Amino acid sequence: MVNSGGWLEWEAEQARDWISRPQAGDDKYSRGVLGVRTGSKDYPGAAVLGADAAVRTGLGMVRYLGPRRAANLVLQRRPEVVTVPGRVQAWLLGSGINAATRTDAVSTALAEALAEGLPTVLDAGALDLVARAIGPTVITPHAGELATMLANEAKPGSASQIAANAGEWAIRAARLFDVTVLLKGAVTHIASPSGARLTVSTGPAWLATAGSGDVLGGILGALLATHSDQLETDAAALAPLAATAVLLHADAAILASAGGPIAALDIADAVPLAVAALLEHGIDPGQRTTG
Rank of each mutant, 00 (worst) to 15 (best):
M1I: 14
A12V: 13
W18M: 11
I19V: 11
I19M: 07
A24R: 14
G25F: 12
S30H: 06
R31C: 12
R31N: 08
V33H: 07
V33M: 12
L34T: 01
L34A: 01
R37P: 08
G39E: 06
K41T: 14
D42R: 14
Y43G: 08
P44N: 00
G45C: 02
V48M: 01
A54C: 00
A54K: 01
V55Y: 04
G58N: 02
L59D: 07
R63P: 11
A70N: 07
N72V: 13
P79Q: 03
E80D: 05
V81G: 01
P85L: 04
P85E: 10
V88E: 09
L93T: 02
G94E: 13
T101W: 13
R102V: 09
T108D: 15
A111S: 15
A113K: 07
L114E: 04
L114G: 04
A115G: 13
D123T: 03
A133F: 05
I134P: 05
G135N: 01
G135H: 03
P136N: 04
P141V: 03
E145Q: 08
L146K: 08
A147T: 09
A147F: 07
T148E: 14
T148F: 07
A151G: 08
S160L: 11
E168N: 12
A170S: 13
R172P: 12
A173C: 02
R175F: 10
L176Q: 14
T180L: 00
L183P: 05
L183G: 06
L183I: 08
K184V: 05
A186C: 10
H189K: 14
P193Q: 07
P193T: 11
R197M: 03
T202I: 05
G203N: 00
A205D: 08
L207N: 00
G213T: 09
G218T: 07
L220C: 13
G221A: 03
A222Y: 03
A222N: 07
L224T: 06
Q230R: 14
L231T: 10
E232I: 13
E232D: 11
A235Q: 11
V246E: 00
L247S: 11
A252D: 03
A252F: 00
L255T: 01
A256K: 03
A256Y: 02
A258Q: 15
A258I: 06
A263D: 14
L265W: 10
D269E: 13
D269W: 09
V271I: 10
V275L: 02
A276P: 07
L278C: 09
H281L: 09
Q287M: 15
